[in-house]
Every structure is written in C-alpha cells, then in structure tokens.
Design a protein around this nucleic acid. Sequence first.
RNA 1: GCGGAUGUGGUGAAAUUGGUAGACACGCUAGACUUAGGAUCUAGUGCCGAGAGGUGUGCGGGUUCGAGUCCCUCCAUCCGCACCA
Length: 938
Amino acid sequence: MSDYQFADIENKWRTFWAENGTNKVVEDTTKPKYYVLDMFPYPSGAGLHVGHPLGYIASDVYARYKKLLGYNVLHPMGYDSFGLPAEQYAIQTGQHPRLTTENNIKRYRDQLDQMGFSFDWSREVRTSSPEYYKWTQWIFIQLFESWYNRKSQKAEPIATLVAAFEQSGNEGIDAESDFDQIFDAADWNSMTYEEQERVLQDYRLAYIADSWVNWCPALGTVLANDEMVNGVSERGGHPVEQKLMRQWSMRIKAYAERLITGLDQLDWSDAIKDIQRNWIGKSQGAMVKFQIENHTDCIEVFTTRPDTIFGVSFMVLAPEHPLVNQITTSTYQQEVEAYQKKAALKTERDRQADVKNISGQFTGAFAIHPFSGEKIQIWIGDYVLASYGTGAVMAVPCGDQRDWDFAKHFNLAIKNIFQDQDVSEGAYAEKDAILTDSDFLNGLSYQEASKLIIAQLEAQNLGKGKINYRLRDAIFSRQRYWGEPFPVYYQNGIPKMIDEQHLPIILPEVENYLPTADGEPPLGNAQQWAWDTTQNKVVSNQEINGTTIFPLELNTMPGWAGSSWYFLRYMDAQNNQEFASAEKMNYWKNVDLYIGGSEHGTGHLLYARFWTKFLFDRNFIQFDEPFQKMINQGMILGRSSFVYRIKDTQQFVSASMKNQYETLPLHVDISLVDNDKLDMDGFKKWRSDFANATFICEEDGTYLCGHEVEKMSKSKFNVQTPDELVAKFGADTLRMYEMFLGPVEQSKPWDTKGINGVHNFLRKVWRLFYAQDGSWRVTEDAPSKESLKTLHKTIKKTTEDLDRFSLNTCVSNYMICVNELTEQGCHSKSILQDFIVLLSPYAPHICEELWEKLGYEKGTASFQKFPAFNPEYLVESNYDYPVSINGKMRLKVNLPLTMNPKEIEEFILSYPDAQKWIDGQTPKKMIIVPGKIINIVL
RNA sequence: GCGGAUGUGGUGAAAUUGGUAGACACGCUAGACUUAGGAUCUAGUGCCGAGAGGUGUGCGGGUUCGAGUCCCUCCAUCCGCACCA
C-alpha cells in the first residue's frame, strides 16, 4: 500500500468491530468503571449534520482514552423516539409514526456507524419500544404510589400515609401536599373510598388534578413551562393560552430544596447550575396574615422583606384572588368586576409585554396592619400574579420599585422607613439600610429585623418564616398519540393503576392522529381502549360496562418521561424482570461524564434529577444524582455563502465589487463553493432560473462569494452532512477535524477550509510507516534521544489535555509530534507503536490498521495500555533563557540549568548582546527565575 | 433590569501556576519540482517601518520587576430569567 487508503481501511475496521463485538462491554468488578453518556438524540427525519456528532466524537475520544487507562467503560447510545415531529408528519401523510421513526433510526444508525463510534449497540434503547416503556409506566406507578414526607425528607410508599391517617388523621403529618384541611382518624375512617382517594390525590407524587395549564391550540396539547419560550410554544412558535384542565402532574415541588442543594456536589458549568437555581427560584421570607376590616377572613401574603412591614402603605391582590369578590364593597363592585374582566382577557404574553402600563383598582376594603393597627387600602392589580406566593402582596413602596410605581400612579402614600435614604425618585431595594419609623425595629439592619419580626409573627400567631419556590409542579399529560400510554383506567371517575404484572400497556392503533370530534385526545379514536379487570387485558370500548370493564386514560406521557431514566436502562438494557438489576446499577452507578447541549437546563436535566432522587428515596437505586460531570458542547453554526445578483438582472457580481452595483444577496448552496470560489457552471445547473446567469468576475477570472455565519438550515443551503466529508476524507479525518476546530464547549462556525490540514496530518502519520513507493519503513532500531523526547513530551501533553477536556490542543500535540518525528527521520517501531496507541482515541481506524501492520493481533489496538510517561527523557542540561529588559523580551541566551541566579546575573551583565540594551546604566534590580526567565530592570 | 458566558492576526485558535503573545492548522505571498494536482517541498507571513526599532490580546485605569492571565470602570456580542413580592 503506497498511500493512505482511508476508505478501504475504514470499511475493513467497521466490519471487523461489528463482527467481533469489539465494543461490547460487560460488568467486570476487577476493573474500575467509567460511564460516558451522550444526550439522547431524537431521530429526526433530516438525519445528522456535522453539528450533531461533535459531542459524540468528544465522548467517544474520552471513552476510548479511559479504556486505554484500564477502566471498564460504558458508552451506550439509543433513541428518544417518541415525539412531536413524527406525529405531525403522521397527521400530514397518514404514515404511522412507528414507521417513520424506524426509518429515521436506520438513517441515524448508518451515520453513527460510519463515524467509528465505540458504542456498545447491544445496549441500545428506544423509548418508543414496549420493552422500554413498560418500565416508564412502572416508574409512573411507583410515583403514584408515593408521597413526600418532609419530616424524613424523602418519598415514602403511600401505604405508610394511609396507615397514619387510619391511626391519627393528618395532623401529625408534614407532607408536600395541596391538602390544607385537618382531619382525624375518625374522619378518615368514615370517608368513602372515593373521598379518601380524592384526599390522597393531594399527596401522591404523581397525581391527577384540575390545573391551569399552558394549552397550545395549534399543537392540540398542553405544554410544560419549559416547553414554552416567551409565551409561545418552543416547537413551532404557536400561541399558548391558560386553560383549566384535568391533568396528570408530578409533584416535583417536593424536591425543590434537594434539587438546589444537590447542585453543589455536581461538576457542571456555573451557567447550567444558575439556570436550574433560577428556575427553581428559592426565596426566603415570611408569610404574614393581614386581618380584613369587618371581615372574618385574612389576607395572607408572602414577602421576602418582612423587615419592611412598617413601610406597608397598601395591599394588592391578584385580580383572580379568591377573596376579591367577598371583600369588594358595593361602591366599587362595578369597577372591580370590570377590571377583573379586562385582566382575564389579557393573555400571559400581553401581561408580560405590558410592564410599563400600570393598572389597578381599589376594592373599597381595608386591611388592618398586624402591628400598628392602621387601616390599609386593599387594591387589585395585574402586576400581582395569582400563581406565585399567595397571589397577594403587602406593598412597601419605599422598598420595592413596582410598589413604588403603583403608589405614584394612584397617588398612594410612600412611607420612608430607611434611615438616610431618599425615596422621592424611586424605591430603595438594597438590603443594607437601617430601619427607622418602624416601632420596635428601629435601628436594626435587614438581618436583625427579619429575625425579630418573624419571631414576633410566630409568637402572636400572625405569620411565620417561610421559604417559597418559583418551581411549579410539572404537568405530565399530553393530548398526543405518539407517547407512552398511561397504565391507568377510570372507575367512576377515579383513576386506578393497572397491576405491574400486566405491563406494558401497548399504544393502541388509531384511524387518525387528530383529536376526536368532541375534543378528546387522539387515543379517543382507538376502538380497543378499555381495561377488563377480570381478564386483565385491553378490550374493545364497546364492552365498557362500569362494573368490570373500564375506559383507559386517553392522554399520553410527555417527551421527558422516557428520557428521565434512560441512563439506568443502558446498564441492563435487556432485563425483562426489572427496569435494571440492582447488581448492575450498583456496579455502574451514575454517569461519570455526560455530554450534551445546554438547552435542556430546565427540562430534561431537572426531571432526570427529580426521578433519580425519587428512585433513590424508594431504595431502587443507590445514588441520588444522575450525572456527576457534564460538559455542554457548543453549537456548530453554518457558514452560508452568498452570490450578489444585480437588481432586476441575471448578472452576478463577485464579492469584492458588489458595492459598485445595486445588488441582492442570495444564498447559494455551499456544495457549489470552494474556498469562496463559485463553481459557475454548477451554479447555472443548480436552479433553472439561473441557467442564463452571467458573472462579473475578479481579475483572475474567479467569482468570489460572500459569507455569513448562521444556524445550519436547509433554507440557507449551508447544511453540511458528515456523509460527504467521510466519503471525501474519511471518518478519522472528520473526527479529528471536529475536535481541532476549538474547545468543545464553544460555539463556532463550520468551515471545511481547514480539513485538508488534518487530512494531511494522517497522511504524514502513514508516511512514517510507509515510504512513497509503498515500502515498509518501520525498523527495530533503538530510538534516538530526540525521538524519545518527542514521544514523551507528547504523552505528557496528551494526558494533561485529555484530563481537562482540551480536545483541540491534543490534536495540535499529535501534529507537532509527527512533524518532529518526520524531521528526525524516526521509523523506530518502539516509538511508533506507542504513538499509535496515543492517537487511537481520535483516529481509531487508521490506528487499528497500523497496529495490525506492526504485527500485533488484529483488532486489539483499543485494548492496549496508555503509554507510561517517563520524565527522564525530558531532562535538559541547558535552557534558552528569554532575557527581558524592563519586562520586554529582548534576547535569548542559552545557559546550563546548573547555573545559580548569581552566576547568571554575572554572566548576563557582561554579555555583549545584553550590554547593548543596558547601555552603561546600573540595573536597579535583577529578577532571575532559574529555568524560566531573566528580567533586568533599569 | 438581574444572572451567566465570550471578546487575542485575514480565518479556526494556543498560551494549564502572573514569566518568550499568536503554538498548531487554514489562507495568503514568493520560489522549486512536475505526467497540471484539491500533489509535494523550501522560505516568508500580527500591525507600522527600508531598517534600527516601535507597537500589539474589546476601551480606559490599577497592582506587579513582569498582566491575555489578577483588581476596578466602561463597551460589544451571545445565552438564560424577567412584574417572582
């Protein structure tokens, strides 16, 4: 073989690896484990573009590196294969989503295979396969059968709660719950089954309830908060409205505190941790009760500034607040109702956009200040959200800008309770002022006053210290077809779980994927969708009798259900007894390294942590965080090319002259452009309307295109698929090039310009083994000192770089190494074989080939030991000292490293080249760091 | 508005602990070779300058013998959150 025949080599090894199970991994307690995971891909119809594999390459490089270090590495891949796009496609074409999904997966698999990834495909999972979603349904049942005990700070079986209710009611229970009444054992035991179940729903971690949901009419489904961006759906940008619907929810709020504190132990970027903290939105403060004048009810408010209670000059309730109608006096009834109507008409989006417009309405009612006894006006205003806190605020205009604005607008009092602060122009929101005009809080700081006032509130039963979270319970129902069916049927309207042993409940066939005529979700179209409790199977809807055969749930689960636990299934993907065996999960434990985009910060990453903590609480797993370390790869952007058409003509002008004409830039397919030079013939053939195009070219006769960095998309003709590049340069080149582009975490434009350089590098590697005439060059000669130095320098750098995920500089090291070895004429087997092992994580195909050629057993390159670094080879006797004058590097002197600073100083002061700079002056100071630098200060 | 990240040649970038700014690669320039190729080799390539030299890491300050790196102020771009009481 005379030249580097990458296509043959890569084909050969792909086949070999697949046939010999090279990447299969089994549990092995004699080795330390390491779990490297890529974020679950959704197999879209468009296939992979070069941006997708970036993370997979990074994880594959790292997984192969860890394997060489002696770890037993779990590196699996699978598909998050339920989801909206397949269903939307089904609605349009009538094709079953299962078929399109399967086709897409095939395409993904082909593309992944050609990249040479070391995935253990025997562990592949698909969320849409019944073998998998059987266990998603099973976990749902466990959540349904659990409640959150705040005393033990963990989830417990619902049976323990029922037992407690039977014993002594709910008074001694501290649970995460929406149930706010007190009952005793007698009350509980006298309730009917339905009544008891309704109570329990308020405690279960998976529960059904009427909730205000984000309803997206265009998609025909509800959306979770994280599936919305700026009031419209994340997918498609459709409008979203608030709607009260009976929905399944997950009581993720129970875990709010643990989801925050758990972040401290994780090796994630600050950006992602902040996004999660922000989303959970913890705020510390107090609940305060305000008595309403001439009324038995109280208004409860949540405030983070209980210290400012003497600055309260009015109260504001959300227009939807349940007390509004009761307290409004007849004088104001009309105005209040009008305002409520107006507020209700506004969409969430309008309310957000309308921040500047202050609006509100006095109710005519007054509250009594709990300490001063003063009368305080009660207003309603839409700047107070019904869904946060208690839906009511105590307004302290001197300390809160929104309250201040409201007070100014309606001419309400602004009482100043901050010493030496001016609040005439705006509120003073800092927490560093000393209180004044605040009765027993006078002279105190925020810290001291808050503590004291909370103690007083609690002593007088007027309120209590309280921590509030912004995080909402997660809506778990979707009105879609292509998702996991719930293992739930309804008996007299009460949801009941189907027994575990009858799972999975298989997604039924339907005639069409749209909602039914009477607005039921698509599963309402199914003919066979009823549960027979005697036969324990799904039967025809015709048979529903209300005694033994009942209707099944028509909603399906959201996309995040399957992806919240998939990393566990990889540990034991074929298990049909359990979701994964305890033994295997105890071996693999949680993911050591998770690579994926940062766009899942508030969705998948939060839900997966929630489910992990839940499974941990219930003793199903032994760890309570799923992903120990995470790296968020940057997005690869497209580099679009443009041609410039002169207005109203078919004449195109080259980029450098485009300003001399009135032009319209047009996207041109990047496959027609090389190095900004346009293939003019190809362009004419590209689209019929360009067939008669003429060009105004550069002097050398080429047409230069302009360019811009944009997201990769079909419409911009800037999509680069890995397929073409693999065909042209090989997978090893593409793998190395994607890493070479820059730090994994950074977003960067895709540009194939540099790929030749990386390809040439691999050819140079080949040339170390084979001469141009095809003869084998490797010798048994003892390596030279220089070559050993080059090799060990590279081992050291490679280790350091891989350990800190500097995957781009690592490629540079290899290049420097090969450049040096080439220059040295090194063909020593002992050097080259170590180098091959070093390089193999990046370029596995060529390394396997050369490894075999070196005479080793076929296909064993990835089972080698990472070469040991020997510092002895790097020991130097001399060092090229940079000599700075006043901190500026001026010259270099080569001196033995044995010289001490005094000897160096003497030498340098008499050194002719240095004297030119010293110019007869006496140095004020000499800084001499042996082995580093000499600095002469004049 | 709040929080986070990023600003270095024509381009992608490197500089790990404060110690030679621009490694490595692309591109470009000049040359060699040649069965004209998207090949290979040699030399050069931050900017200004003929040169000596000057200057240079978003702007402006500071600490230091020495700052891309540490501190302060400001600017730009990107991302997240946003009437959250």
